[in-house]
C-alpha cells in the first residue's frame, strides 16, 4: 500500500513525468488516428441520412464531442488547479496551463460548428439560447484563464492565481448555466441518453467514436504541451541539460 502512494507521487515530479509523457504521447496519437478514421468513416459512410435534418446533421459528429470536451476539460483543469493549490505540486499547475488552450479550442470549435449547424436547421447563425450563451461564456472563462496566466511573469504565482480563477469559474459554471437557461431556451434537448436514445445506433456509435478521438487528441496535445512547459520552466536544472544534450 505504502509503495503505491510513493509511486503516485513519483510522477508528480517533472523530472520523472517528462520521460513518461514522452513515452505515452505516441500511443495517444496512434489512438487518436484510429478513432478518428473509424469515427469519420461511420459518420460519413455508415450512418444514415437523418429524416428531418438531411445530410447537414453530420456536423454533430464534430459539434457534440467538441462541446463535451470543452466542458469536461474545464472540470479537469479545475481539478488540477485544486490539486495544485492543496498539495502545492508544480506539475499540477503545468497540467492546468497545458489544458487551457485545448479547452478554449474545443469551446470555439463547438460554437463555430454550432453556427454552421444552426444556419440550415434554425435559419440563423446565432440565437441567444441557453446552451449557446453558456458555451460562449465558458469560452470567455478559458480566455480569461489564459490571459491571467500569460500576464503574470512568475510561473508559480501564475499557477496559483490561475488555479483560484479556475475554481471560482468552476463554482460559477452551474450558476451561469441555470441563470442563462431560465433566461431563455430553445435548444433541442440533448439527443444522447444512455437509457433510451433517440438516435440511430450507428449515429450514436459514430459520435462516441469521435468523442473518443477528441479525448485522445486532447490528452496527446496536453501532454505534449506539458512537456514543452516543463522544458521551459526547468531549463536551469541539470537533468534538462542532460535531456536536451
Amino acid at each position: 500500500m505504502n509503495n503505491k502512494i510513493i509511486n503516485w507521487f513519483k510522477f508528480a515530479s517533472p523530472q520523472s513525468f517528462y520521460p513518461l509523457a514522452g513515452r505515452m504521447i505516441p500511443w495517444f496519437w496512434a489512438l487518436t488516428a484510429i478513432f478518428t478514421v473509424a469515427g469519420l468513416w461511420i459518420s460519413f459512410f455508415v450512418a444514415p441520412t437523418d429524416a428531418q435534418q438531411g445530410e447537414g446533421y453530420r456536423i454533430i459528429f464534430i459539434h457534440v464531442p467538441a462541446s463535451w470536451m470543452s466542458m469536461f476539460i474545464y472540470l479537469v483543469l479545475a481539478f488540477w488547479a485544486g490539486l495544485g493549490l492543496a498539495l502545492n505540486t508544480r506539475l499540477s499547475g503545468m497540467m492546468a496551463q497545458a489544458l487551457a488552450p485545448t479547452g478554449a479550442l474545443m469551446a470555439f470549435l463547438s460554437l463555430w460548428t454550432g453556427a454552421f449547424w444552426g444556419k440550415p436547421m434554425w435559419g440563423t447563425w446565432w440565437v441567444w439560447d441557453a446552451r449557446l450563451t453558456s458555451e460562449l461564456i465558458l469560452f470567455f472563462l478559458y480566455i480569461g484563464f489564459i490571459a491571467l496566466q500569460a500576464a503574470i511573469d512568475d510561473p508559480r504565482r501564475a499557477d496559483k492565481a490561475g488555479a483560484i480563477l479556475a475554481l471560482v469559474g468552476a463554482v460559477n459554471i452551474p450558476i451561469i448555466y441555470f441563470s442563462v437557461k431560465w433566461w431563455n431556451t430553445l435548444h433541442q434537448g440533448s439527443s444522447v441518453n444512455l437509457a433510451k436514445s433517440s438516435m440511430a445506433q450507428t449515429m450514436l456509435w459514430g459520435m462516441l467514436l469521435m468523442a473518443l478521438a477528441f479525448w485522445m487528441y486532447a490528452i496527446a496535445v496536453a501532454l505534449t504541451r506539458a512537456r514543452a512547459i516543463i522544458l521551459e520552466r526547468e531549463r536551469h536544472t541539470e537533468w534538462i541539460k542532460e535531456v536536451v544534450r
Partner: peptide, 18 residues
Amino acid sequence: VRGGGVLLSLLVLPLYVP
C-alpha cells in the same frame, strides 16, 4: 499584474452574467 485593468474586466465580466 501587467495590464491589470483590462485583464480585470476580462476575468470579472463573465462572472457578472448571473
